[in-house]
Amino acid sequence: MTRTLFRGTSVQRSSIALAATALFVGSITACTSTNNSDTADHLQSLRDAGTITVGFAGEAPYSFEENGQLTGATVALHREIFSQLGIETVEGVNADFGSLIPGLQANRFDAVSAGMSILPKRCEQAAFGDPEFNYTTALMVPSGNPKNLTDMESIAASGAKLATMTGAVESDYADQLAIPAVQVASPQDGMDAVTSGRADVFALTAISLNWMKNNNPGADVDVTDSFVAVINGIPQVGAGATVFRTDDTELLNAYNEELAKITSDPQKYLEIVGPFGFTENELPDPALTTEKLCTGGA
Score class of each variant (00 low, 15 high):
24 F>R: 15
10 S>F: 11
149 L>A: 07
102 P>R: 04
262 I>T: 10
71 T>A: 14
91 E>F: 02
71 T>Q: 05
63 S>V: 00
188 Q>Y: 02
180 P>A: 12
90 V>G: 08
79 R>V: 05
134 N>R: 13
144 G>K: 12
242 T>S: 10
131 P>C: 07
131 P>I: 03
143 S>D: 03
206 A>P: 01
52 I>P: 00
232 N>F: 03
68 G>M: 04
205 T>Y: 04
114 A>P: 01
223 V>E: 04
34 T>K: 12
54 V>W: 00
186 S>T: 13
232 N>G: 11
76 A>M: 06
278 F>T: 02
203 A>H: 06
119 L>D: 05
230 V>E: 06
181 A>N: 07
48 D>Y: 05
79 R>D: 10
143 S>Q: 12
286 P>G: 12
162 L>P: 06
247 D>L: 15
107 N>H: 12
140 M>H: 01
43 L>K: 09
2 T>F: 07
246 T>Y: 01
202 F>T: 03
96 D>H: 14
242 T>H: 04
195 T>S: 11
242 T>E: 12
139 L>Q: 14
120 P>L: 04
125 Q>N: 04
206 A>L: 04
34 T>P: 10
182 V>N: 11
114 A>V: 01
104 L>H: 01
233 G>P: 02
297 G>H: 14
231 I>T: 13
5 L>T: 08
168 A>R: 10
268 K>P: 03
183 Q>P: 05
51 T>I: 08
101 I>G: 02
70 L>W: 02
254 A>H: 10
244 F>H: 08
184 V>K: 04
247 D>T: 14
135 Y>V: 07
215 N>D: 14
211 W>V: 09
253 N>Y: 05
118 I>L: 06
50 G>T: 09
219 A>G: 11
13 R>E: 04
97 F>I: 10
110 D>G: 15
131 P>V: 06
14 S>C: 03
5 L>E: 09
119 L>P: 00
272 I>Y: 07
61 P>C: 13
199 A>E: 01
184 V>A: 05
46 L>H: 08
15 S>I: 08
218 G>S: 13
91 E>S: 00
80 E>Y: 08
217 P>D: 06
244 F>Y: 09
211 W>D: 04
271 E>T: 15
256 N>I: 05
218 G>L: 11
254 A>L: 06
6 F>S: 15
139 L>E: 05
292 K>T: 13
101 I>T: 10
149 L>W: 03
139 L>C: 06
213 K>E: 01
251 L>H: 00
43 L>Q: 12
7 R>K: 14
33 S>R: 10
213 K>A: 15
21 T>S: 05
156 A>G: 14
64 F>L: 08
25 V>E: 15
92 G>A: 09
169 V>W: 02
273 V>W: 08
252 L>I: 12
123 C>N: 11
158 S>E: 09
144 G>R: 11
122 R>C: 00
126 A>P: 01
280 E>C: 02
126 A>D: 00
153 E>L: 11
259 L>H: 07
209 L>P: 06
179 I>P: 03
6 F>Y: 14
132 E>P: 01
209 L>M: 12
297 G>Q: 15
178 A>Q: 15
66 E>P: 01
211 W>I: 07
195 T>K: 12
276 F>T: 08
135 Y>T: 13
89 T>C: 11
147 K>Y: 03
231 I>W: 05
137 T>E: 11
181 A>S: 14
196 S>W: 02
4 T>F: 13
98 G>T: 00
224 T>F: 00
52 I>H: 09
30 A>F: 07
112 V>C: 09
287 A>C: 02
